[in-house]
Design a protein around this nucleic acid. Structure first.
Lengths: 207, 207, 207, 207
DNA sequence: GATGAATGAGAGTTCATTCAT
DNA sequence: TATGAATGAACTCTCATTCAT
């Protein structure tokens, strides 16, 4: 989707839209602001993308696709739980720190329209050669059978590992005020975060 | 008598507003829908709460206050890290499963208006006798000095423990589709979740 | 009309309404503000006066009646132009400085609803034993015939004498800023004003 | 071309707004009516003028500016009191008969918001090279010193001359019903009015 | 008489979208 | 491709009025 957009103006609108949608959600986003931010006339927005709803769907789909791809990348590389607990936090935390709009968009959509994201993921899986569900479940079953991991329930497993890699950025303002500190999201912080999550998972979820 | 009717109507509007705001965010929420949901005339909304913005702020403030109080409750009871890792997940997961709008509202506000939630928390702390920041930081420093916990950085510490207790509910639709399972949020699930988080934290963050 | 209103509460509403209507006109007046100013519940306004429109009409009618009566008083006393130019400014300027709402209400109604005031005056005349029109016209014709006054056209005559007695109060803020002075409406000012108008009319409109 | 169309539509809204505001005042004016009168969509009103309040202020400012300019024109030409009493009524009465909305708007604002008009005039003077206040006061002082005029107090002077040139139009419905005549505002009437005021002032305020 | 609660109709304003150029 | 003008529908909010007590 993304690489199909070559035109400079179109790209500017696309980027502004991501910024707007990931901040205000679909209902709160304003086409006016997107156009202004992109430095173009509002009518161009509709010329290129037909409607607000349409562009939103394109962006969400693109975001979810990127995320799924990331998950599959990790799964392909991680053949042991040790490696998994090393690779996954590194991959996710770096990815989200570069594309900060991604966790924001997905969270907003999860809160505001959970069904849409569910069916979207299922659609993507339907046209994927080796869809994650079976992959993940069988991998975890195997690790569990081999006595390598503490949590055998795949649901609990994921609910333990994803949030710590995903939520930290969005939650940081709250952590800042609860601890009365200032958090700078720089390379040093990223490394510390990766280290901390890896530690937690290795000690906490490895037998 | 009259008073009770007033309060009952006001309460209905308040509850409908929570539902609406926690689903659509401030920008996407519709006063019309709130009034209809509450079964009252739209003008009553303004009669009682002056404006959409005003009611939103009241609700957010109330939500954050509730959350802070929960945190303080936990801190008061947990005098050792062991107890903390037992009490905290239990308290949070149960609380959020009863007030599902709470994590949704706070997440939306964190994404859409992080500064507001920051200053709101600081305001609340300013009028609190024993504000958490010092409490939490000194408690963690002590536990760290005594060699009881693995993560000495309070920021990383919180970023490890809060997400797993908070994010699971919102993320569940995504987990459902990624694993192709159906998740029922019932007592059995709650207990499993509490158990899993407690395990993770005890093994992962206790020396 | 006025003396029929005995009830204290009713009187308070009446007075507040005069204040409100004479400031904002009918369209801009707010029942809420009238009730609040009167220190009573809004519903009482309707209990006593049925509707905003109705009370407005009552007040306008009362105001115009008062004004007409004043004109008739003056006409009865002034049997020569000299006396007229002495009595009229004195009577009008004092009357309006005591009932400042009166010129305001009448001006607003003249601007916003000239036809209504016209037919209102005609209605009042219809039930008056000795209505002014003939009185005034015959008086002026007589004075003109006797060569006592310079302006024989009754229309121009009135347009010369009424405004200087009526407009000064409303226009004073404008005079203040155009001349960069502060005008205090006190007894000394009133006397100066009466003197100035009397002079103007005597010199200007007496042969 | 486009520019002309834009200006034409904007002008239509502007003119309709003047009509509406000068009839109903700010509070009673309806944006709906203005748009309909201009033959455009209501939203265009806001597209061009942001808000009802904003347009009202623009119009008031424009009206007051026009009035001030008229005053300055008269002052520049009138170097003796004789000339002044000839030029001023002619200029004012013609001006107001062409722009009938002007006295209406200014009167409404004087009644409903006297402070605003005061500060508006002061603002205009602040950015005027030769502001009237000193001009007028020194001119009158000079004429008074030279024994040419009867009224030496500038406040009374203005309160004698402005109302007779300004109030006649608004007051005409009342004059009509009080005298039971019909007044046609045509060239003949205008000339009669100018003549009458000039007479009044020359005889009444010239020594 | 007096009040707080409640309402329908409408007011000002916003917003996604379309049109004309 | 790009834009300013224009619009209908919807949105937040207001206001005169009524209801129940």
């Amino acid at each position: 989707m993304v690489n199909k957009i070559k035109k400079r103006t179109q790209k500017k609108i696309w980027d502004s839209a991501i910024e707007e949608f990931s901040t205000y959600g679909f209902g709160g986003a304003r086409v006016d602001r997107i156009a202004q931010q992109a430095g173009v006339n509002k009518a161009l927005f509709f010329y290129y993308f037909s409607s607000k709803e349409n562009l939103y769907q394109l962006i969400i789909k693109d975001a979810v696709k990127g995320l799924i791809q990331k998950i599959q990348n990790v799964l392909e590389q991680a053949k042991t739980p040790e490696r998994f607990y090393e690779i996954m936090p590194e991959a996710f935390i770096r990815y989200f720190s570069q594309k900060q709009y991604l966790p924001r968009m997905i969270l907003l959509e999860l809160v505001q329209n959970p069904d849409s994201i569910t069916s979207l993921i299922r659609d993507i899986f339907a046209s994927t050669p080796n869809p994650p569900p079976e992959d993940v479940k069988s991998l975890l079953a195997q690790w569990s059978r081999e006595g390598k991991i503490t949590e055998s329930d795949p649901v609990q497993f994921i609910m333990n590992i994803i949030p710590v890699s995903l939520f930290w950025l969005i939650g940081s303002p709250m952590v800042e005020s609860v601890l009365d500190v200032k958090i700078e999201i720089n390379e040093a912080f990223i490394q510390k975060r990766i280290q901390s999550v890896t530690n937690l998972l290795k000690r906490g979820m490895l037998k």
